[in-house]
Design a binder for these strands. Structure first.
Lengths: 358, 358
DNA sequence: GACGTAGGTCCTATGGAGGCC
DNA sequence: TGGCCTCCATAGGACCTACGT
């Protein structure tokens, strides 16, 4: 068992050179040219023995571990935000890096522990991701390790990757209104005068701002704004249910997220109203359930994968203007909005339900 | 910038001892007792300087990295299976370990690369997870690094953690039948005589076996078995829709997974049938959508978190009987099955829709 | 009894040694 | 005498540990 790993020394011995030469050759060092013949011998020996450099040892000596730490508060749980990890993972892989994952369960001190666990292992950089784009505190214990906030912001860190909620909202509402759905518009999720609370994150603020700017730009005034918190299926259902009971007939519903839309569908269905025919619905996030609905939901997708990838790039790049980095939210145009041909041509193709395996 | 990290040597100098002493004291080595006074001096110095051991260096010298590698084929994508990671993460943390994540996109050779990336970094063990419990090949390049298969099996590896599909099926079907839903039973997803195919994984085989054994044990014969692949919302809808069109009236539907159930709900609803009143529905997995449905879905939950945790325990333990390790599937009893009081007492509490943040 | 020295983990970085023209 | 080419010894990096004083 446990046959020891092949080391540089083994290769050196077999090739009849020093370990230095092996190192230089295996790393393709320019400048200090060894004889082509020696290089061939070394490579042959390495191949024969199946030599692979020990990256731990290399990290110790170069101070570069080629590892990125990914801290999240429950991101791995959230099916939406697992896209963040996925995007980061793929981009990291493209650069020969690998990801350390550490999760903080929101407990105090838990972040601190996670950061220690990562810096103790000499990660080259840290991505600090959140489910909600709230402002987070980053302990000073990171030291000089570069940090990028992902779907979050922090007073302690310059770089942050966020979805471009404002533009996304402008676009999706623009789509709705340009398609002619300008009467009896309802905003579901949060009203303009709802007092600030913990849910009113920077992302929500911008999303809402985009919605209203788009409405105002076209002179459209909603007939109702429905507060509800949290944005759950149940609350979406209840809000639209109550609205219909009060004899208000929406022709277009702007949902602040897909779960609210899901609830709205149900309430509408119970009242005999058909989405796409009687009522247009748009939403945000492109949750998995968006394509489970009938008709499928038109929504501004949260670009989580791209955001994750972007965070890795920022970390590895080093040379970039610090600040917020906004990633566009692609529109998923599907059956919940009837779009005239003319407008339809300008926008991306509908998605289909993915082939889930289980 | 980049103020160098505090090393053992720094602590030693400040405390006026050798690095050896620092090492021994910081690691609480018994046996070789240093003076209590020296220990105090060293700890004070370490505190003052904010010393933390460099785990990379430690790993190099002890051959223990306290890192576990987690390889998955798209597990991070799948919102169901992200529970695997979450469970593993928390258990690893409890043991002072951290998780390397590597994803293979199903490409050939990709697994090989992932394994290399991990073993090059001296991980203490590897968890190889899959979305479908299929049989996977594990390249010999793992060498002597211990491997545990998670939600998968392999001819090359003894240990595997799987959901106890058979028991889960026995239980959930038992629940359905014991509640009195024994007439006009329909099995939705896969029939007994459907030929083997790529979807017929070991998990599906056992799930199906459990269903039928439970049915037979009570002398119940379904009035229909509906094949469909993949198990999507659309296919579930279509199958039940067609069934109703053919004038077959199900009183109980056994869905092979939650997405099928989702589709079934829709088809039933369109036909004016109410789940929980006219038709009982049970299912598998406890997907997020299970609680979005109305009434909420009664389902045998895939115990992903517990499975992930179990995999970590097996890796760290070392002393255990090798083989398959089955994790029970808890029943989530909700509104889709009317359960008589008497039976209801014996089973867990209904869940509620989680407070999603976005 | 209390502690330090030296050698081990594996790789990289640097200055310079030896041979040849 | 110098220059050029090929190569290596040595000294890190930060830690652990067997042995010695």
């Amino acid at each position: 068992m446990a046959q020891k790993r092949v080391t540089m020394a083994d290769v050196a011995k077999l090739a009849g050179v020093s370990t230095t030469s092996v190192s230089l050759i295996m790393n393709n060092r320019q400048g200090t040219r060894l004889s082509a013949e020696a290089a061939i011998r070394v490579r042959a020996a390495a191949d024969e023995l199946g030599y692979r450099p020990n990256l731990t040892a290399r990290a110790l000596s170069t101070q570069k571990s080629h590892v990125i730490g990914f801290i999240s508060e429950q991101v791995t749980t959230d099916r939406l935000a697992s896209g963040l990890i996925r995007g980061a993972l793929q981009e990291a892989k493209r650069h020969g890096h690998v990801l350390f994952i550490a999760e903080t369960e929101g407990e105090e001190g838990s972040v601190h522990d996670a950061i220690d666990a990562l810096t103790d292992r000499q990660v080259d950089g840290i991505i600090y991701a959140a489910t909600r784009p709230q402002s987070l505190h980053v302990p000073a214990s990171v030291g000089s390790t570069p940090v990028v906030m992902l779907n979050a912001i922090s007073d302690d860190v310059a770089d942050a990757v966020l979805a471009d909620e404002y533009e996304g909202a402008l676009n999706i509402i623009g789509l709705l209104l340009d398609a002619g759905h300008i009467e009896n518009v309802v905003v579901l999720g949060r009203s303009l005068d709802q007092p600030d609370d913990e849910w009113f994150t920077i992302a929500v603020q911008r999303r809402l701002a985009g919605i209203w700017d788009a409405l105002r730009a076209r002179g459209v005034t909603p007939i109702a704004q429905l507060d509800c918190q949290p944005w759950s299926v149940m609350n979406g259902y209840q809000a639209i249910h109550d609205l219909l009971e009060a004899n208000v007939q929406p022709r277009a519903i702007i949902c602040l997220n897909d779960r609210l839309a899901f609830g709205a569908y149900r309430a509408l269905g119970e009242a005999g109203l058909r989405v796409g025919r009687d009522v247009a619905v748009v939403s945000f996030d492109d949750d998995d359930i968006a394509v489970y609905l009938d008709p499928m939901l038109t929504t501004a997708a949260a670009p989580f994968e791209e955001m994750g990838a972007q965070a890795v790039r920022l970390l590895l790049d080093g040379e970039h203007a610090p600040g917020e980095h906004l990633v566009p939210m692609p529109l998923r145009v599907r059956g919940s909005v009837k779009v005239p041909e003319k407008v339809g041509r300008l926008i991306p193709h509908p998605d289909v339900e993915p082939n889930w395996v289980r």
